[in-house]
Design a binder for these strands. Structure first.
Length: 318
DNA sequence: AAGGCCACCTGCTTGC
DNA sequence: TGCAAGCAGGTGGCCT
């Protein structure tokens, strides 16, 4: 469910309250939420008990609490995960999976609520970031350590990360022969983009999802990356996208960006630019939404000519 | 390398 | 009214 803007809203909410706070008793309501903590719930409790949160950091859709033990409490929200800060006397949510009491504050606890349980929590070791730069987006004012939770080591930087190497990303994107949306969704190429913002950015850039990434021009790819940044920045300013109660911030409040969506979830409704009916296509076991006029489908075999020749020359000479 | 398909889960909506 | 199928913000594995 949540993509980068939604996770960043959650990160900011947690950071305000948790930085400098010790974690206290953990109640594992449903152990399936810890399936990625392979050592089991007892070990999870032991590693979190008494640990002080030194920063709350995000890369793409991954979020972690840096702990003074040197480990990280890593979270992914999956499709339906929520992290809530609640007074303990609020009744348990229907899909409450895990509860963490906070040291020195009987008035607030951290709850992980997740309907579908695609989300998870784990305590993990920190490893050096492959590029040696700060691992993600934090809040302390000083840069986060140049470290990453081990399971995040393969995740690329996201479009809002000041340490993103844009030249490198464009070079890698422009040699991909896969469809451009498939590339945008590849978290090892660029992270944080999911089905909503991929479709919205492609619409803004006037690019069909099935165009070959390698068929883009460099300025075209740059425009697409700028469209991703713009749509994510606007969504962040609106508190994220919620079209139902499954996405909320740490206080349980919805974001408003769904009102600004141009194509996502709008099959049959008029394109906000030209009025043509928005089209829904099956894509990777889910859906893609496009304006057929603003984002014409590529002709079969188009968009790979000159670059394919360049690649072939390179391949034959090295 | 790239793409197709599936699994992991629950719950809501749609169609017969 | 019931029941089945389809759909949902993600990730990752296995197979071609």
């Amino acid at each position: 469910m949540p993509e980068l803007p939604e996770v960043e809203v959650v990160r900011r909410g947690l950071s305000r309250r948790l930085t400098g706070t010790a974690l206290d008793a953990v109640e594992v309501v449903d152990p399936r939420i810890l399936r990625r903590h392979v050592a089991g719930p007892e070990d999870f409790r032991a590693r979190t008990a008494g640990a002080v949160v030194t920063d709350v950091v995000r890369r793409g859709k991954y979020l972690w609490l840096e702990l003074d033990s040197g480990e990280a409490l890593l979270t992914h929200l999956g499709m339906s995960g929520q992290l809530l800060l609640q007074p303990p006397d609020v009744p348990d949510e229907r899909h409450l999976r895990l509860r963490v009491a906070l040291g020195g504050d009987p008035g607030c606890e951290l709850r992980f609520v997740d309907q579908r349980i695609f989300g998870s929590m784990a305590v993990t070791a920190m490893v050096p970031a492959p590029d040696g730069r700060p691992g993600g987006t934090g809040s302390t004012g000083r840069p986060p350590a140049a470290l990453l939770p081990a399971p995040v080591a393969h995740i690329a930087r996201d479009p809002l990360d000041p340490h993103l190497d844009e030249g490198l990303l464009l070079r890698r994107l422009l040699v991909r022969r896969s469809g451009v949306k498939r590339a945008l969704l590849d978290q090892a190429l660029v992270s944080g983009i999911g089905n909503i913002y991929a479709d919205e950015a492609l619409w803004r850039a006037g690019v069909h999802y099935d165009r070959s990434a390698a068929g883009l021009t460099r300025p075209g790819a740059l425009r697409l990356l700028e469209a991703v940044r713009t749509v994510m920045g606007e969504a962040l300013a609106e508190g994220g996208t919620s079209f139902d109660s499954l996405y909320v911030n740490v206080n349980g409040e919805s974001g408003y960006f769904d009102r600004a969506l141009a194509v996502y979830g709008r099959a049959g409704l008029p394109c906000r630019r030209c009025g043509t009916a928005v089209r829904r296509d099956p894509f990777m076991n889910r859906s893609s939404f496009t304006c057929p006029r603003c984002q014409p489908r590529p002709r079969p075999g188009s968009g790979r000519g000159p670059r394919r020749a360049v690649r072939a020359n390179r391949a034959s000479s090295g």
